[in-house]
Amino acid sequence: MRLRRTMLYLPGNNPNMLLRGHLFAPDGLILDLEDAVAVREKDAARVLVRDVLKRGEFGSCEVTVRINGLDTEYWRKDLEMLVPLGRLDGVRAPKVDDAATVRLLDEALSEIEEKAGIEVGRIKIFCLLETAKGIFNTYDIATASPRVAAVIPGGEDLTADLRTNRSPEGTELEGIRRSVIVAARAAGVDALDTVFPRITDDEGLRRETEFIKQLGFDGKSVIHPNQIPIIHDVFTPTEKEIERAQKIVAAAKEAAERGLGAVQVDGRMVDAPVVKRALFTLTRAGLLEEGTEHA
């Protein structure tokens, strides 16, 4: 599995941010050609992002591009210019309303990958759900293509579509976050939370991150580098959690070697789901290689 605790948006027409974004060590980068770029700058941003991708210094970050909406004239050109470079890990698509949108994107990606000699299916799709319809169709969207890596509820656009606005408590997004998590898990994709817009409110960010972590989210989109360490801190297991996870994994390994199904650790039954959670804890702590198969 890949850690996606933080994915940092970088404005696509800003060389300073595009070139330095990885230095803040988020788990992923989103080179943004959509909302962060004015309509008259779409062409220049595309060239800049292409050349930054060619240079390819992104540390260990997962590299994605937020393309323009599939209801615009820009998205195909975004893909045609950037996908053939073979450097992108994924594409973040805005305003995904239904499975048909995902399939359209999937087909376009396959066509470009094939032409460019890139393994077909390599580029993942990250779906932004920014309308009530998108939220309603989350499971269908998440299962519309094997490329779908994550679903991400929107913030501002979504609350506007719901005829409300974002409150500090996030009351308006509570039910949505719960439903997205269920659909994402059912579909076997990641659930990533929307951005926290108040960039100087560290306490608020920590509270919201703790809440979405408890719901089961895998991470959060980030609009300012200062938000990264706070979110990583919340998602990083404590010493005690790590110690317990290591005990469980060791006990499970021993049990497997002895041909036993379940074992006890500190007086508690340890079976497959507990081992799975322990491995997950160690991955989040950076003690297991990403990509290690879970039991």
Binding site: P15, L19, A44, V47, L48, R50, D51, R55
Partner: peptide
């Protein structure tokens, strides 16, 4: 601007 930025801006 780094070279790659200058090149991208010129191309655009």
């Amino acid at each position: 601007a780094l070279d790659l930025v200058l090149k991208a801006r010129l191309e655009a």
